[in-house]
Amino acid sequence: MVLPLLKLGTLALKTLSKPVAARLKRQAAYAPKFRNFIVSIAQANHRITTRMQRRIYSHATDVEIRPLDEEKAVQAAVDLIGELFVFTVAGAILIFEVQRSSRSEAKKEEARREELETMKKRNEDLATQVELLRHKLEEVEQLAKRQGLNGIFKLKHANTEGGKLAKPA
Rank of each mutant, 00 (worst) to 15 (best):
K167A: 07
V20S: 09
E105N: 07
Q43F: 05
K154F: 01
L126V: 13
H135Q: 14
Y30W: 09
L94I: 03
K164A: 13
S102T: 06
E97M: 13
G162R: 07
K14E: 10
S17A: 14
L68P: 01
T15F: 08
K7I: 08
Q147E: 14
E110I: 00
V20D: 03
A21P: 11
D69H: 01
L165R: 15
A60S: 08
K120G: 02
L16D: 08
L3A: 12
K18W: 04
N36Q: 15
T61I: 12
R113W: 03
L5Y: 11
N45G: 10
V2L: 11
S17K: 05
T118G: 12
T49F: 12
L155T: 07
V140P: 02
E131V: 00
A76H: 06
K145R: 13
E131A: 12
A76D: 11
T88V: 03
R54Q: 07
V98M: 00
I95Q: 04
V20A: 14
N159L: 11
A111S: 03
Q27C: 08
T10A: 05
G163F: 06
V130G: 03
S104P: 04
H59K: 08
K33H: 13
S58W: 01
K136D: 15
L84T: 02
I65H: 01
M119S: 12
L3T: 10
E124S: 12
V89Y: 02
Q99K: 11
I41A: 14
L137T: 10
L16A: 14
L80N: 13
A92C: 03
L24I: 03
K18F: 05
L24R: 00
K145W: 07
H157Q: 11
Y30K: 14
R146Q: 13
K120S: 05
A169H: 14
T128I: 03
L13F: 04
G9H: 07
A77L: 04
F85S: 09
N150S: 11
F34W: 13
T61L: 08
D79L: 12
S40A: 14
K156E: 13
A21R: 11
N36P: 06
R26A: 11
E97H: 12
E115Y: 00
F87W: 11
R35E: 05
E97D: 06
